[in-house]
Write a protein that binds this DNA or RNA. Structure first.
Lengths: 259, 259
DNA sequence: TAGTGGTCTAGACCACCCC
DNA sequence: GGGTGGTCTAGACCACTAA
């Protein structure tokens, strides 16, 4: 049983240890791809109890520099170049180039990107989505749900909702690959000219289900982004509901200095 | 010493307990303002060891529904109405109304707002800020650091950096209250007409220091926002570095559908 | 099968808060 | 002083992973 030295120090031992490990990573003593010493080895090295090392490793994980897997150990992550998600990516000139926004951005960053389509088909509009689309809750809409990978790991899930009367005559929207420029190009081909996009973001800790879908440590932050695509007639013809691993993205927006 | 029942259950006991407590809050059994039962009481109620309750409470805190203070206990938080931080708040017409952006938004939301100025004065430009301002790292700039409160709790720290040659002839910028419309109005009065603002956001877990400054549970997500204020001459005359409690804000941006 | 992380116990001491 | 949360111990058992 513990002789309990007590927690009297101003800065707790487990924080000190966590900081030391994080510093070793930042300083390059532990390089990406290296394994962090096992917990029992750290117990010996620091001369503390297992629980203390355990708490320290929780802190280290929270720094996002390390990935822990159960029977294996903790791996120093290759600092993934974050994807810069700029508001400029909706420019028509990017679409005319034939690429969807995500592909252009990924190539720019020199990363391997993959999209896996999880579902395309009719669905009942969820309440908040229906409100944004200006239809009744439960009305039939087209849902397009997909999972984005980056360098092999899932980083983002996205579901687009489109009113049925908008999509029913555009067969490409029911296809996994809607063609050059993506679904926005098809919508503009069909006469739905966009005036603006409105993005709403909120960051919060991932739920258990979300953290497993995005392969995150439980409680790691995610960004919930909802985008309304508004046409020149003022109609919202698409709502895109997106969940992203927060450590994988930087968002940037240009705001004109309007009167 | 423990007879160690072991952690064999598929869903750990501490998660079960945490979920139960969270459900009690969501269902209104525990109302805002109530105290969560003390840890020792929970130990008796659930018949588990203190450490298990402790881990459960860490989970509960991560939900953001509860605020724990050392010698007191855990208080069920009044679900604060989030502040909607819209990109429209930089419109000149809002400034002409005489109010700074944050005040207008807070009043709109019916919340009490307070700003505490922590520092105004010359400072050496940090590297990344210097780069954005187009000056050398370490050059003298004006720093304005402030802490924003909402209903009595700190929700945001912000530091503005302005090049010295821009501010040296605008005495109001050295004052705690720069007058109607805030510092942007003073800058435009002085001939620095804004063309656009560029905001860059990233969400991540709070560090220990940050979580104490913003009265957050350690590891709760924060949003790091950096804004460049760009004039019509293309010069960045202000960089504002902001750290926000993620659960207190929703961000929204309008993106014109440009060519 | 050996090693690793994950869960749990029972008990100690400390620091903070309020009466 | 009595209660509350925060840190720490020493040891047990379990689940996952890889040789």
């Amino acid at each position: 049983m513990g002789t309990a030295v007590g927690g009297g120090r101003s800065v707790p031992r487990y924080v000190q240890i966590a900081d030391e490990i994080v510093q070793q990573i930042r300083a390059g003593v532990l390089k990406p791809g290296d394994m962090v010493p096992s917990e029992s080895e750290l117990v010996d090295r620091y001369g503390v109890a297992g629980g203390t090392i355990r708490k320290a490793m929780v802190e280290v994980r929270a720094s996002g520099l390390v990935e822990t897997r159960h029977g294996k150990g903790s791996l120093v992550k290759a600092r993934p170049p974050v994807r810069h998600r700029s508001s400029d990516r909706f420019r028509r000139s990017h679409r005319k180039g034939g690429k969807a926004a995500y592909l252009a951005e990924s190539e720019q960053a020199g990363a391997t990107a993959k999209v896996s389509v999880l579902f395309i088909g009719p669905a009942d509009a969820p309440g908040d989505v229906a409100e944004r689309l200006g239809v009744d809750a439960g009305d039939k809409v087209l849902a397009r749900r997909r999972l984005y990978f980056r360098n092999g790991t899932p980083v983002e899930t996205a579901t687009s909702y489109l009113p049925w009367d908008v999509v029913k005559d555009i067969p490409e929207l029911f296809s996994e690959n809607p063609g050059p420029g993506g679904i926005y190009a098809r919508l503009e081909d069909d006469g739905h000219v966009f005036a603006e996009f409105v993005e709403t973001l909120q960051a919060r800790p991932a739920s258990k289900a979300e953290s497993s879908e995005l392969a995150l440590s439980p409680g790691a932050p995610v960004v919930h982004l909802i985008r309304d695509a508004v046409t020149e007639e003022g109609r919202v013809v698409e709502v895109c509901d997106t969940l992203m691993a927060a450590d994988q993205f930087v968002f940037s927006y240009r705001i004109p200095a309007a009167d």
